[in-house]
Amino acid sequence: MLSLGVPAWEIILRAAAVYLAVLLGLRLSGKRELGQMTVFDLVVLLLLANAVQNAMVGPDTSLTGGILAAGVLLILNAGVAYLRLRWRPLRRVLEGSPTLLILHGQVLERNLRRESLDREVLETALREHGVVRVEDVEMAVLEIDGSISVIPTGGTTHRIRHPVKFLRHA
Score class of each variant (00 low, 15 high):
Asp118Gln: 11
Leu20Met: 13
Arg113Ala: 14
Val107Ala: 04
Leu76Ala: 05
Glu109Ile: 09
Ala21Leu: 13
Ala81Gly: 11
Ile151Val: 12
Ala170His: 12
Leu108Pro: 00
Pro7Gly: 06
Arg114Val: 10
Leu103Pro: 00
Leu142Cys: 09
Leu42Asn: 09
Glu138Ser: 02
Thr157Ala: 14
Glu135Ala: 07
Thr156Tyr: 12
Met1Gln: 10
Leu63Thr: 13
Leu2Val: 11
Gly155Tyr: 05
Leu126Ile: 05
Ala16Ile: 10
Ile75Leu: 11
Asn50Ile: 08
Val121Gly: 05
Leu46Lys: 01
Val80Thr: 04
His129Ile: 07
Leu108Gly: 06
Val131Tyr: 00
Ala140Asn: 04
Arg168Ile: 13
Ala55Glu: 11
Thr64Pro: 09
Gly66Arg: 07
Glu10Ser: 13
Ile102Glu: 01
Val141Cys: 01
Leu68Gly: 00
Phe166Thr: 06
Gly146Pro: 04
Arg161His: 14
Leu74Gln: 07
Arg86Pro: 07
Leu112Gly: 05
Ala69Ile: 06
Leu167Thr: 04
Pro152Lys: 00
Val72Phe: 04
Ile144Trp: 06
Arg159Asp: 15
Leu4Val: 13
Ala140Lys: 03
Val134Arg: 00
His158Lys: 14
Val132Cys: 05
Val43Arg: 02
Arg32Gly: 04
Leu63Gln: 13
Leu122Asn: 00
Gly5Trp: 06
Arg88Tyr: 13
Glu115Leu: 07
Glu143Lys: 00
Ile12Ser: 01
Val22Arg: 05
Val44Glu: 08
Pro89Tyr: 14
Ala49Cys: 12
Ala125Lys: 06
Gly130Tyr: 03
Ala69Tyr: 02
Ser116Phe: 15
Lys165Val: 10
Leu90Lys: 07
Arg14Thr: 05
Glu109Val: 08
Leu103Gly: 02
Val132Arg: 10
Val6Arg: 03
Glu138Ile: 00
Ile102His: 03
Met139Thr: 03
Leu63Phe: 13
Pro7His: 08
Gly35Gln: 07
Leu83Trp: 12
Leu122Trp: 02
Leu90Glu: 15
Asp60Ile: 02
Arg88Ser: 14
Arg32Asp: 10
Leu45Lys: 09
Asp145Val: 01
Arg113Met: 14
Leu46Trp: 07
Leu94Arg: 02
Leu28Phe: 12
Lys31Trp: 01
Arg110Gly: 09
Ala78Arg: 12
Leu94Gln: 01
Gly146Phe: 05
Leu76His: 07
Gly58Ala: 10
Ser62Pro: 02
Leu100Tyr: 04
Val132Gly: 10
Leu20Tyr: 14
Pro152Ala: 01
Thr99Ser: 14
Leu28Ala: 11
Leu34Thr: 12
Leu13Met: 12
Ala8Glu: 15
Ile160Asp: 03
Ala70Lys: 09
Val6Leu: 08
Gly155Ser: 07
Leu23Thr: 11
Leu68Val: 12
Val134Ser: 00
Ala125Glu: 03
Ser149Ala: 12
